[in-house]
């Protein structure tokens, strides 16, 4: 993905279509959002109109049938999923049962911590969640202070598509209400981070005390339609 980064050149602001051209077949793509809050809608829409395929999508959920991220599955662009909750899109269970896609399910807290770990240079971590359940099968269990924990590995991506409220031209980001969810964490855990925002302002126009994602995590900024 270093090659893709070099293609960006000076300045981070691009059009949605230019940004999507940086994504290759077979990529592992993280996408922010929880339900319909905090999704990078314009980037998702452009991705579903592109010919990119064999994707691994790393996201909390997969929208609804033929809606949002769900469209990628309807289009046959998905190879596998890593995520948490697909009950809002019954097409996921259907495709999985038919052997069309592979699905790796993680508890929500484990899912986000695995992404955070990738972003902060931690290869794996122990968590109490899922001990004794189907989701910890074939994973290492270790006891600390008399309690069992399951070893979970970090989840890294080639590309992260995230949604923020405002960016400055450097790529500092602030978010809006519960649209924040997985976005700041995913911004740390991919080789190429593309942020869709409602508004782009000049450096210095965002209060430095309020910036949630520091600019070094962000490679490309696109302005989405409101």
């Amino acid at each position: 993905m270093e090659a893709s980064k070099n293609m960006i050149g000076n300045g981070k602001i691009r059009s949605v279509d230019e940004a999507i051209l940086l994504i290759k077949d077979g990529s592992r793509i993280m996408v922010g959002g929880f339900g319909l809050a905090g999704n990078p809608d314009c980037l998702i829409d452009a991705l579903t109109k592109s010919s990119v395929r064999d994707l691994t999508i790393i996201s909390n959920d997969l929208g609804a049938p033929n809606t949002g991220l769900g469209k990628l599955l309807t289009n046959g662009q998905v190879k596998s999923l890593i995520g948490n909750y697909y009950n809002w899109n019954p097409e996921v269970a259907k495709a999985y049962n038919e052997g069309v896609i592979d699905v790796k399910l993680l508890p929500q807290g484990t899912f986000v911590e695995a992404i955070r770990a990738a972003g902060v240079g931690i290869p794996a971590f122990y968590t109490p969640a899922s001990v004794g359940t189907e989701l910890s099968k074939n994973k290492e269990i270790r006891s600390f202070n008399g309690r069992d924990y399951v070893l979970e590995e970090a989840v890294h991506a080639d590309v992260a598509l995230i949604k923020a409220y405002k960016a400055d031209a450097l790529g500092n980001l602030i978010y809006y209400k519960t649209a924040r969810n997985f976005n700041p964490v995913m911004a740390m855990a991919a080789d190429l981070v593309i942020a869709e925002v409602d508004e782009i302002v000049a450096p210095g126009d965002l209060d430095p005390e309020c910036i949630i994602t520091p600019h070094l995590f962000v490679d490309v900024i696109v302005k989405g339609g409101k």
Binding site: Y85, N87, W88, V92, Y96, L105, L106, T133
Partner: peptide, 16 residues
């Protein structure tokens, strides 16, 4: 029953 594929935050919540 093959229709559900989702765990949510329940495993984290009950353990934490």
């Amino acid at each position: 029953n093959g229709k559900q594929l989702g765990v949510g935050g329940a495993m984290d919540l009950v353990s934490g």
